[in-house]
Design a binder for these strands. Structure first.
Length: 858
DNA sequence: GTAGGGTTAG
């Protein structure tokens, strides 16, 4: 017998662990001995082969009393079939319900929940009746899966077999229903227990936990109240620990305080879990001083207590305190866990400090801790916030290594990480990679967030058409998923970018038909933005007036709309109303107010706001405010003042400031200052095609053709190409897009005919082409021809061709409108009936009867 | 029975 065993063992000496070869020789006599099988063997068994070796040895030695451990080992090696074989063959004579229960217990402990249910079914098929010991385990498995259907059938068996008098089992039923989210089921069983007077503290705790887990904090607190009033029941630590998160989620600090007091009276505060729950409750209610008081008094603290404090500080924006506490943890040699590190990483990420987040992540790795899903999610949002594509890719590698289940079958965590990755790639302007990930997913595994981050990625990076296409695909019959408020906001953002009024209105109708109460303010603000950026500021106003609830963004969005449409007085009226309504303008609101002033020529008013910012609004002027002021003074032709303002700035001017000055120089034909601004821009290494074009236009206007040529060759050398101007019109049959000299449209011939006719007619009215807007050193007549083919003129001709009489023609241009086109369109508006609404990169122009709403401040 | 995480606007 022994020899046979030797023969079996010997051929596999290379296994990393072999319980038998390691202790098979007596060290003194060098003779073979029979190994003593201990619990360690079972624990160390990690592979199926090792488990089978152990199995052999148990057979050889006839150690049937070790069958339970062996079954557990097989289950741990993911071989429940083998475990059942043990049950059926190894101990046929002993095979009783007891053994089945042992097996089921092992499977539950190891989390093999499907196997638990398989075993449960099989034992019944073989004629074994589950007993009082079986049911709690099986119910636990149903709850954790969760599977209401199977849970309910187990409940039926419990009921049919008269186990409903067993409190232990009934409590498990309550917990099972709770975990499956079937609250009325849980409640019925619980109330039944109470009525029969057999409910114990565990029953009460279970029903409270059920409500808390389902997010019904109100009912959880109600039941806790009933529990404290019931003299037969004495709440324990678990009751407290269950209830406090309910207070926290409601922000119900006063009820939390009562629970805290109750815990003190019952002497339960000494319990670390209770202490932690109290600290956490105060932290979540943003009462960090209270939290700190409890934390300081805690006799026993663990890493959870510290983490609750660190997270609390981080989440209310007291990140310095969070970091200080984090340092203290390290000083006091508290063993940091992955939660601690993740909290700090998330803190940095939330403040947009992606690189610091990465640094902390590296430290965490250096401590030998593996990131988990939460760490990676925080890290990804950090990378996304700063557009750190390279680090994002690095995180992607970690995700593949540590988390993503590459064998398919997306678990919830996988999906979350994939969504985070798509979001990161989208925000880092790698929409192509994002889309590849999106497309490579099984359609059914995508959820609303997956679609939203992809749509949002497109919308944020100027690929608004793709965003809307994807949005309509999402609603299509193949993948109908109900968009949530986030999705709608992203889609509306895309509409805003395109000026896609028709599509925006469809989304508005969808919002109207479906209830989006919880996030209505957010969505309504996006609608205001969409209407105003699509040219219908009055619709935006109606929407604003009808809002039941507003926030500061609502007000600012409306102001922005009025400002863009050149209705600066109304913008400032809204500003005043906003303040009268009790809202405190922030930095953004002031930028919008200044912007409204600058686009309407209210120079003095703007200067006044700017000077009063600190005292009246308690906002320290930032670079963006200075840029607005340079724009304001520049548009008004006060270029010297603008320059002086820049020179007096307390911070380094950013490119936007110089661009503002440069474009003012273009408008007011100031070559010298324009050259200076362009030089400063190039020092900041942020020359873009726009600044070259502006400078070139300035030279052309001064007829300095050599300089124009120089700029052109400079652009060639540096590889910077002028972004092609592009205009589009939203027609009934979709969008028609035009580039300069575009002849690709099917109606091209008619468009050019109409245009030629219009030009003839306005020339007769006194229009003179402003040739300085053409970027070519050719004679004036030819330049005039190039001007006539500008995209906005083509778009207008198409609009006239296709619009019904009297209907407004809405044109959008990706760059600022060309000065010559502006003049030409002003003339044209005199001879046609339609209002022309032109949106360019800077603002709206409403042309009607030979004048434009911008009154020259474009 | 306790802690941490994803998508939206001016």
């Amino acid at each position: 017998m022994l020899l046979a065993f030797f023969l079996h063992v010997k051929p596999k000496p290379l296994l990393p662990f072999n319980p038998f070869t390691t202790c098979f020789f007596c060290t003194t006599t060098r003779t073979p001995t029979i190994p003593l099988i201990t619990a360690t063997f079972f624990k160390q068994c990690k592979t199926l082969i090792q488990a089978k070796l152990l199995h052999q040895q148990i057979l050889v030695q006839g150690l049937t009393n070790m069958a339970t451990s062996l079954m557990g080992t097989y289950i741990a090696c993911k071989a429940p079939g083998q475990a059942i074989l043990v049950l059926e063959r190894l101990v046929p004579t002993y095979s009783t319900v007891f053994w089945w229960n042992a097996l089921i217990r092992h499977a539950v402990h190891l989390g093999f929940l499907e196997d638990v249910l398989g075993l449960y079914r099989k034992m019944q098929r073989l004629g074994w009746r589950p007993d009082h010991y079986t049911f709690p385990f099986v119910l636990k498995a149903c709850g954790e899966l969760p599977s209401y259907r199977r849970g309910a059938s187990v409940h039926a068996v419990v009921f049919a077999n008269g186990f409903d008098s067993n409190v232990f089992i009934c409590n498990a039923v309550v917990a099972m229903y709770g975990r499956c989210g079937v609250l009325d089921g849980a409640r019925r069983v619980f109330e039944d227990l109470c009525q029969r007077g057999i409910g114990d503290v565990v029953s009460w705790n279970s029903i409270v936990a059920a409500y808390v887990q389902s997010g019904d904090a109100n009912n959880a607190l109600k039941i806790f109240g009933r529990m404290t009033a019931d003299t037969r029941i004495c709440p324990d630590a678990v009751s407290i620990v269950n209830t406090l998160p309910a207070c926290a989620s409601l922000g119900a600090w006063s009820q939390g305080k009562e629970v805290h007091g109750f815990a003190v009276r019952c002497g339960l505060v000494e319990d670390v879990f209770v202490g932690n729950a109290i600290v956490d409750m105060y932290a979540k209610c943003q009462m960090m001083d209270e939290a700190n008081k409890v934390f300081e008094r805690m006799v026993v603290k663990d890493v959870v207590s510290w983490n609750a404090m660190v997270t609390g500080y981080s989440q209310i924006g007291r990140f310095e305190d969070a970091l200080a506490l984090f340092e203290k943890m390290r000083e006091e040699k508290i063993k940091l866990n992955v939660v601690t590190w993740s909290a700090v990483i998330a803190g940095y990420a939330q403040r947009g400090h992606g690189y610091e987040a990465l640094g902390v992540f590296r430290q965490m790795r250096a401590c030998g801790l593996e990131p988990n899903v939460v760490t990676l999610m925080s890290l990804l949002s950090g990378c996304a916030s700063v557009g750190a594509l390279f680090h994002g890719k690095e995180t992607h590698c970690y995700a593949i290594k540590c988390i993503l289940n590459l064998e398919g079958g997306d678990s919830g965590d996988d999906l979350m990480v994939i969504n985070g990755l798509i979001d990161m790639y989208g925000k880092c302007k790698s929409t192509k990679v994002a889309r590849m990930m999106f497309d490579s997913m099984a359609p059914r595994s995508r959820n609303v967030v997956t679609w939203t981050v992809m749509i949002g990625g497109y919308a944020q990076h100027g690929e608004a058409n793709d965003a809307l296409e994807l949005f309509s695909k999402m609603l299509g019959p193949k993948n109908f998923l109900k968009p949530n408020a986030f999705t709608l906001s992203c889609a509306l953002m895309a509409c805003s970018r395109l000026g896609a009024l028709r599509c925006g209105k469809e989304i508005h109708a969808h919002v109207f038909r479906n209830q989006y109460d919880s996030a209505m303010v957010f969505v309504a603000n996006c609608l205001i933005d969409m209407y105003s950026k699509s040219g219908d500021i009055d619709a935006a106003r109606v929407l604003f007036d009808n809002m039941r609830r507003r926030n500061d963004v609502s007000w600012t969005s409306l102001m922005t709309g009025y400002g863009m449409h050149g209705r600066g007085e109304e913008a400032l009226q809204v500003f005043d109303e906003m303040r009268r309504a009790g809202w405190v303008p922030d930095g953004v609101t002031l930028v919008v107010a200044l912007y409204a002033c600058s686009h309407t020529g209210m120079v003095e008013k703007g200067i006044q706001y700017f000077n009063d910012m600190r005292e009246e609004f308690a906002v320290v002027p930032g670079v963006e405010h200075y840029a607005c002021m340079v724009d304001l003074l520049g548009r008004a032709g006060r270029l010297d003042e603008a320059l002086r303002l820049i020179e007096g700035m307390p911070m380094e001017p950013t490119p936007i400031v110089w661009v503002a000055l440069l474009s003012a120089c273009r408008t007011h034909s100031n070559v010298k200052l324009g050259e200076y601004a362009a030089k400063r821009l190039s020092e900041l290494e942020s020359e873009n095609d726009g600044s070259y074009t502006l400078l070139s236009n300035i030279y052309a206007n001064a007829r300095r053709w050599k300089d124009v040529a120089r700029i052109r060759s400079l652009m060639k050398h540096t590889g910077i190409r002028k972004r092609p101007g592009c205009s589009w019109v939203q027609g009934k049959k979709g969008t028609a897009t035009f580039f300069v000299g575009d002849r690709s449209h099917p109606l091209s011939q008619q468009i050019y005919e109409i245009l030629a006719d219009l030009i003839q007619r306005i020339k007769a009215m006194g229009y003179i082409p402003e040739t300085s807007y053409a970027l070519h050193d050719v004679d004036d007549e030819e330049k005039g021809d190039l001007l006539f083919e500008h995209s906005e003129k083509l778009a207008l001709a198409y609009g006239i061709l296709t619009s019904p009489e009297g209907a407004p023609i809405r044109i959008t241009k990706n760059l600022r409108v060309c000065g010559d086109c502006h003049t030409a369109i002003t003339y044209i508006s005199k001879i046609i009936d339609n209002e022309i609404i032109l949106r360019d990169a800077s603002r709206f122009h409403h042309f009607r009867n030979g004048s434009c709403s911008c009154r020259g401040y474009w």
